[in-house]
Design a protein around this nucleic acid. Structure first.
Length: 269
DNA sequence: TAAGTATGTTAAG
DNA sequence: TTAACCTACTTAC
């Protein structure tokens, strides 16, 4: 489930389990054997996340840069690690914990300079306290591109994916096809603040929940809904189901090779 | 058993 | 704009 909240949560989880002591590292699948051999028995001293990029810091060696892509996953376990199952690119372990990484787009050792280059090409991340939403606003407010496309552009804002995009636009009643430059400054500030709050909750619960208390199934006397992505949302992957607020069927369309979901009634220009 | 799907990104055309 | 890539799971036949 890799949007930005997942990555920041992974940084915390890795820090908590592995930082400050030597780790054992291996690549059962074999595709990261050389890197893992260098990491083995080294001390992890820190972890960082920017958007969907995860960095694990190792003194003298630099950083392990991980990008999960569409279906990469980390899984954690307690105690001694069992025999690996499936395609495990990287396994980290100590006496108390293990972590298995499967299916990442990127898993590589990089230098400080290379890490900085990644930060430089990413926009501000609502989960990084010191990041400045003004940088994103400057790009958005001058762009003819739709706000839906801009929100997914990691150079403009880092960490937002298809779920947060759909949900934040719904929560602010914004037509996904509205050009960025037609967005109001107030609207952008509100969206950024909302994203930061939603994504922080995402880190805390390790899932995406966006439905306000007054619109939950219980509050509206609707049958509870089981979501296959694990969170409570308004429109994401709810194509043709009734909008939780106005009951109109949720619309879906292709936008930049990704599925867009929105409610035409609730989200206007 | 095969096909389709997924919260992503890059490179080729 | 399209294809390719990384993996696991669900659905169709």
């Amino acid at each position: 489930m890799p949007e930005g909240h997942t990555i920041h949560r992974l940084a915390e989880d890795c820090l908590h389990r592995f930082a400050g002591r030597t780790v054992r590292a291996g690549s059962p699948q074999g595709k990261f054997s050389d890197g893992a051999a260098l990491l083995d028995r080294q001390v992890m001293y820190g972890a960082d996340a920017h958007g969907k990029h995860l960095f694990l810091g190792f003194e003298a060696l630099g950083w392990v840069h991980v990008h999960l892509g569409l279906y990469g996953k980390f899984s954690f376990g307690a105690g001694r690690a069992p025999a690996p199952v499936g395609q495990v690119r990287l396994r980290l372990s100590n006496d108390d914990h293990y972590a298995d990484l499967r299916g990442p787009t990127a898993c590589e050792l990089i230098t400080d300079a290379e890490k900085n280059a990644i930060h430089d090409r990413l926009g501000p991340d609502p989960l990084r306290d010191s990041d400045d939403p003004e940088r994103a606003w400057r790009r958005i407010s001058r762009s003819r591109t739709t706000i839906a496309a801009l929100l997914m552009d990691q150079k403009i804002i880092a960490g937002v994916g298809n779920v947060y995009r759909a949900e934040v636009l719904f929560r602010h009643g914004i037509d996904p096809y509205r050009p960025g430059r037609d967005l109001g400054r107030r609207q952008w500030d509100a969206m950024w603040t909302d994203l930061a709050a939603l994504m922080r909750e995402g880190v805390r619960h390790n899932r995406i929940d966006t439905v306000r208390p007054e619109h939950t199934p219980e509050a509206m006397s609707r049958p509870p809904r089981v979501d296959d992505h694990g969170g409570e949302v308004y429109v994401y992957r709810r194509a043709n189901l009734p909008c939780l607020i106005c009951a109109a069927p949720v619309r879906t369309a292709d936008l930049g090779a990704r599925n867009l979901f929105w409610c035409e009634g609730c989200q206007r220009g």
